[in-house]
Design a protein around this nucleic acid. Structure first.
Length: 806
DNA sequence: GAGTTTGAAACT
DNA sequence: CAGTTTCAAACTC
């Protein structure tokens, strides 16, 4: 399995989708409760979860044997049962759940003579295309079946009332009479053709396929996702069992692409790669910008080194089942869950859900995303009868996103940061016995990946709760998970890693530091957690985690990589990422109290000046206790203090307000002023001058702006000067070389310098005689100086003795 | 860089 | 919840 594009998250439904759990073991299953119901953890793996906002059902149950209706509810909003999600028309299965904003339409038209029969309408037909459109989006797209087994779908550039740019996410599925299935996801630019590669298989009479119906025949899925790329990205799924593709609504406002592929015939022990691509800030981005971001941040990775580029093959042998379900949500928060689990050979159900995520059997990916303005949502992953050994759950969201990664036993986690990007990339690679070759294709980044070995607990993960800094969690996912989980939040991504047992610590999962990652202690089950800050990944590279892993009994190596920082506190990620973290200077708090900014931000101390620091992995126990203590005192201790207003920074306000008494709230002592926001009614300050009309504040602001401008100008001037000098040296080098190897300064002899000065003085005198203003005089002198330099340079390349003549 | 001021966090 | 203490950052010299 491969790619989870965070962009996809923004397109994904607001609610958490429940993907049907894939039964890895026939014997036991974890019942999946209804979406609206709290998830029940598997009996053998209870997972304590918390939720702040149970009002909106967002829990996704991944159990395979979940009640059909419940599952359906979790997956889609329109289909009553799970089985109905699959179209039963001949050979063609297409499930489309209405995306909340989907307005784009695709027209399917057979334009060439072909043995493939495709319906033009959305209604299912014997021709082999069925569209479930109960309140669903219609798909219509002219397509052409080429002679080389390709179907080219030409997306309608524009449809009435539809904005392709804003609603790029379109998924359609078609099937040939022979049972071939095609899933097309258009997530990219409008007007780009979609090409479906048709498998060269014999025609098979289309027959109604119901989810759960096992078929000995192979069915091929080819999924082409076009998300701003013109190149083809077919995905073929071969499966012996009957399969159903489920496509749920897409958030068309933003593009998301998730491609997870596992190469056919790859053993479960083979390397599995997870790539989460750039997350889309669903809030801050407009539709257009989101599209561009998708294009830039989109990642397509191949499943294995042998997998041809651009082609992802999901191949399940008779024994596997993959299923991905995504349900649309009406909430502003966006949550995407893509789960995929392997099934026993006889497992009848097999489904692939788009838009974007495809998980490999035996693995599960949860993608959860929520907007900053909406409550955080929790995705729960399924539990199978057996602890999923290779299940992985990822939740990615932006501006607030959470990632839950049930890590498979040997797994690698890589965190990738693209410079300048406001998103954090997380790559999970299930580790195998051998080294995994990780292919991360993060558009816009050429960052090299130097994964650092990391030990991942093989123990079953009992829970994971993403923590959303500014916003309460809506739900918690109590599910028994595989072996590891990663929770990320909008502002930061954290890893929850297996840690030494800390049974006494039961962190309030809803209020953990942003991006906190909790991982159960190996074998200890659900009560041991290690809370790791977002920077953990980065810091892992500095060796702390290896030690921890060893002490924690991690059994398998994994790699974590980070290239940059994560967004913080709802602040622009670019700013946060570009701004170096301020080192703390704590001396008495051991950096385990909120006095410490590092700790308060959920970060490890790194390159700080603190003494007796315990805010590191070496003191994970103390740190965990401290976190718990803080949460006990204030459940929202780690939530951002500065809320994000609806209209941008203007509405930002301090959640608690300040209590300044002497600073007039015009110094950085004041948290409001420090955050560059006005004091609000939440504040209890005395003598506040930090309000809109305050003249003092305006003055300060002007001064600050002016100072900033000066700094910028100086910086720019220095940069320009350096560039010019560098360029000058570069350009003069050949001449110097040709002139006998003399360095540039060698030409500035005493005579030359004197001549230059004379020229400058003369110029100054001229200006003075002409009663030129000082500025003009200075400019004239400088210009003359420039000319002198040019003459020196020019002469340097010609003669050994440059002459300066005014 | 040392000392002071300040206000949040922690404590009672 | 209020008052006090502790703490580290911000600020001043």
């Amino acid at each position: 399995m491969e790619v989870v594009s965070p962009e996809l998250n923004s397109l994904l439904p607001d609610e958490i989708m429940d993907t049907e759990a894939i039964v890895m073991d026939d014997e036991t299953h974890c019942k999946s409760p209804a979406v609206s119901e709290p998830l029940k953890p598997c009996e053998d793996a209870p997972v304590p979860m918390e939720t702040d906002l149970p009002a909106v059902p967002e829990i996704v149950s991944l159990c395979t044997d979940a009640p059909p209706t419940q599952l359906t509810q979790a997956l889609t909003t329109s289909t009553p049962t799970d089985s109905t999600l699959c179209s039963t028309t001949s050979g063609a299965q297409l499930l489309l759940t209405p995306s909340t904003v989907s307005s784009s339409q695709l027209n399917l038209q057979t334009t060439t003579a072909s043995n493939l029969a495709v319906n033009k309408t959305t209604s299912g037909s014997p021709a082999g295309i069925s569209l479930i459109s109960g309140g669903l989006q219609k798909l219509s797209a002219p397509f052409t079946i080429s002679a080389n087994h390709q179907i080219i779908l030409n997306k309608v550039a524009s449809s009435p009332g539809a904005d392709n740019t804003r609603s790029p996410g379109i998924t359609t599925t078609s099937a040939t009479p022979g049972g071939q299935k095609f899933m097309v996801t258009t997530i990219g630019k409008s007007g780009q053709p979609i090409v479906l590669q048709l498998p060269h298989t014999g025609t098979k009479p289309g027959s109604g396929q119901v989810l759960g119906e096992a078929k000995p025949h192979q069915q091929h899925f080819k999924v082409v996702t076009i998300g701003g790329r013109t190149n083809l990205k077919p995905v073929m799924v071969s499966q012996a069992v009957s399969s159903a593709s489920q496509v749920t609504g897409l958030q068309t406002q933003q593009l998301k692409t998730v491609q997870i592929a596992k190469k056919a015939q790859v053993s479960s022990a083979g390397p599995i790669k997870y790539i989460i691509t750039k997350a889309v800030n669903s809030k801050g981005l407009t539709a257009q910008t989101s599209v561009s971001n998708v294009l830039a941040g989109r990642v397509l990775s191949t499943s294995s080194p042998v997998t041809p580029p651009r082609t992802i093959t999901l191949s399940e042998t008779l024994s596997s089942t993959s299923k991905i379900a995504i349900s649309p949500l009406k909430s502003p928060s966006k949550l995407t869950v893509v789960s995929l689990a392997s099934q026993v050979p006889n497992s009848p159900q097999k489904s692939v859900s788009l838009p974007l995520n495809m998980a490999h059997l035996g693995q599960q990916i949860l993608v959860q995303q929520s907007t900053a303005s909406s409550p955080a949502k929790v995705v729960s992953s399924q539990s199978t009868s057996q602890p999923m050994k290779s299940m992985q759950t990822m939740t990615v969201g932006a501006p607030q996103f959470k990632t839950i990664f049930p890590l498979s036993t040997p797994s690698n986690v890589q965190q990738i940061q693209v410079p300048g990007s406001r998103f954090h990339y997380v790559r999970l690679v299930t580790a195998t016995t051998g080294n995994n070759t990780i292919q991360a294709a993060s558009p816009g980044t050429n960052s090299s990946i130097a994964a650092k070995p990391m030990v991942v607990n093989t123990a079953q993960v009992r829970m994971s709760v993403p923590i959303v800094p500014a916003q309460p969690l809506k739900q918690v996912v109590p599910k028994s998970l595989a072996s590891g989980q990663v929770v990320t939040t909008q502002t930061q991504q954290r890893l929850i890693m297996p840690a030494t047992p800390l049974p006494q610590i039961q962190p309030n999962l809803t209020n953990l530091p942003p991006g906190t990652v909790l991982a159960p202690a190996p074998g200890s089950g659900n009560m041991s957690y290690t809370v790791l800050p977002a920077q953990y990944v980065t810091q892992l590279q500095q060796s702390s985690f290896v030690t921890l892993a060893g002490s924690s009994g991690f059994s398998s190596p994994a790699g974590i990589q980070t290239q940059a920082r994560l967004p913080l506190n709802g602040v622009s990620t670019s700013d946060a990422s570009s701004r170096p973290r301020k080192p703390c200077n704590c001396t008495k708090s051991q950096c385990l109290k909120l006095y410490c900014d590092c700790f308060a931000n959920g970060e490890f101390c790194q390159n700080c000046n603190c003494t007796n620091c315990s805010n590191n992995l070496e003191h994970e126990t103390e740190r965990a206790k401290a976190i718990k203590a803080c949460l006990d005192r204030n459940p929202e201790a780690f939530k951002p203090k500065i809320g994000k207003g609806k209209e941008g920074e203007a509405d930002r306000r301090h959640s608690k307000g300040c209590n300044c008494k002497r600073s007039g709230c015009l110094k950085n002592y004041c948290e409001c002023y420090e955050a560059k926001i006005m004091c609000s009614s939440n504040c209890k300050c005395v003598g506040c001058k930090n309000f809109e009309e305050s003249p003092e504040r305006k003055t300060l602001m002007h001064l600050a702006d002016a100072a900033e401008v000066r700094v910028q100008q100086q910086t720019a001037a220095k940069t320009k000067l350096s560039s010019q000098i560098s360029d000058l040296l570069t350009r003069t080098t050949p001449a110097i070389t040709s002139g006998g190897g003399r360095m540039p300064y060698a030409f500035v002899t005493k005579e030359v310098a004197e001549a230059t000065c004379e020229c400058l003085l003369e110029k100054a005198e001229q200006a003075e005689l002409n009663d030129q203003p000082q500025a003009t005089s200075e400019r004239m002198v400088l210009e003359e100086f420039g000319r002198c330099l040019m003459r020196i340079i020019s002469s340097a390349g010609k003669t050994d003795c440059p002459s300066i003549n005014c």
